[in-house]
C-alpha cells in the first residue's frame, strides 16, 4: 500500500496525541475527516459516485449487464467487484504495482457483500437459470491518503443508490423460445434498495487506543488494524484483521463495539445526504473532479 516514512519523533508525537484523544489534525479518536460525496458523475454508467475523504479520492462506477446466473444459485443475480489502483495515486501503482492492493480490496468487498441481506440478489433475476443482471462495480482509486476501505464502501453505497437498472420483460414465442425486451422509455427503470448495504469502518490500533479513519501517517504508527463492516441496524457482515501485528482479544472486542457504533452513526447522515442530493434533481450544481 501507499506508505509514508515517519520518523521516530513523529511517531512519538502521534502516539502521545492519540493517548490524549487529540490527533495531529485536531480530530478525536472516533471522528472522520471531511467527506465529499457526489453521485451521477459518469454518464456512461448506470450508477456512479465519487467520494473524497480527506485526500483519499475514490470513483465508483456501476454497470448492469445481462448475464447467466451462477448454476448453484439460478434465481439470483450477482455483483462483481474490481478495484483498480491508478498510477495517478502514487507512482508505486504503475504497471502491476497496484495489483496486490487491488486484489486485497476487491476480495474484501466480496466478503463484505457475501450475505443474503446486503443487496436483494433475487430482484436481479430476469428468468431463473437463464438470465440475470450482473452488476459490475468498478472502483478507481484516484488519490490515496489512508482509509481506502471506508471511502470505497461509502462510494459503493452511493453508487448503488444511484444505480438505475432498465426494466425488461420476457416474451415467449410459440416454440417456447424466450426473448428479452427492453423498455423503450429510458426513464422506466428499477432502483436497488440500498438500506442494508454495509459500510466499512477501519480501526487502527495506535498505542493502547484505536482510531477511526487513520491518515497515512497514523497508519504508519499502527501495527494492526481491524476492519468492520456494519449495516444501519448494526449487523456486522465482515470482520478482518490487517497488518503484521497481533491484537489482544479484549481490544478486539472493544474495537468491534466502536466499529459498530461508528458504523451505525455513519449510515443515517449518508442516506439523508443521498436523498437530499437526489431531490435537488437537475437544479443540483455539479462539482465533478475539480471540486
Amino acid at each position: 500500500m501507499a506508505t509514508v516514512q515517519v520518523s521516530e519523533a513523529e511517531k512519538v508525537y502521534i502516539l502521545h496525541g492519540v493517548r490524549d484523544d487529540l490527533r495531529v489534525d485536531g480530530r478525536g479518536c472516533e471522528d472522520y475527516r471531511h467527506m465529499d460525496i457526489e453521485t451521477d458523475v459518469v454518464s456512461n454508467t448506470d450508477g456512479s459516485a465519487k467520494v473524497s475523504l480527506g485526500y483519499s479520492d475514490v470513483l465508483v462506477g456501476v454497470k448492469a449487464e445481462v448475464g447467466k446466473p451462477r448454476p448453484a444459485l439460478p434465481d439470483q443475480g450477482y455483483l462483481e467487484f474490481f478495484v483498480d489502483c491508478s498510477a495517478n495515486a502514487t507512482p508505486e501503482f504503475e504497471g502491476r504495482g497496484g495489483e496486490e492492493l487491488g486484489l486485497e480490496l476487491s476480495n474484501t468487498l466480496y466478503k463484505v457483500f457475501s450475505n443474503k441481506q446486503s443487496v436483494d440478489l433475487h430482484s436481479l433475476c430476469i428468468s431463473p437459470g437463464e438470465h440475470c443482471w450482473v452488476l459490475y462495480v468498478d472502483v478507481l482509486l484516484l488519490q490515496c491518503d489512508g482509509n481506502l476501505f471506508d471511502a470505497i464502501s461509502i462510494a459503493i453505497k452511493a453508487a448503488l443508490f444511484n444505480t438505475r437498472i432498465p426494466k425488461v420483460h420476457l416474451s415467449e414465442d410459440e416454440e417456447g423460445g424466450k426473448e428479452i425486451e427492453l423498455s423503450d422509455d429510458p426513464y422506466d427503470c428499477v432502483r436497488l434498495n440500498v438500506e442494508n448495504v454495509p459500510c466499512i469502518v477501519t480501526l487502527c490500533k495506535i498505542g493502547h487506543r484505536h482510531v477511526v479513519d487513520a491518515t497515512l501517517q497514523e497508519k504508519a504508527c499502527s501495527v494492526a488494524s481491524l476492519l468492520i463492516a456494519t449495516t444501519h441496524r448494526g449487523t456486522v457482515t465482515c470482520v478482518r484483521k490487517f497488518g503484521g501485528g497481533s491484537l489482544d482479544p479484549e481490544s478486539i472486542f472493544e474495537m468491534i463495539e466502536t466499529g459498530k457504533r461508528v458504523g451505525k452513526a455513519l449510515h443515517t447522515p449518508l442516506m439523508e445526504l443521498l436523498k437530499e442530493e437526489e431531490s435537488l434533481g437537475k437544479k443540483r450544481q455539479k462539482v465533478g473532479f475539480l471540486g
Binding site: K111, V112, S114, N115, K116, Q117, L226, G234, T235, V236, T237, C238, V239, R240, K241, S246, L247, D248, P249, I252, F253, I256, E257, K260
Partner: peptide, 25 residues
C-alpha cells in the same frame, strides 16, 4: 498465539450481531 493470548488473525463474514461475533470468537 496461546502463550501470549494474542489474536494474530481474524476473519469473519456473513450476518452477525456484535454479541454473537464476540461469543464465536
Amino acid at each position: 498465539m496461546p502463550a501470549m493470548n494474542q489474536v494474530s488473525g481474524l476473519q469473519a463474514e456473513g450476518e452477525m450481531d456484535a454479541e454473537s461475533l464476540v461469543e464465536a470468537a
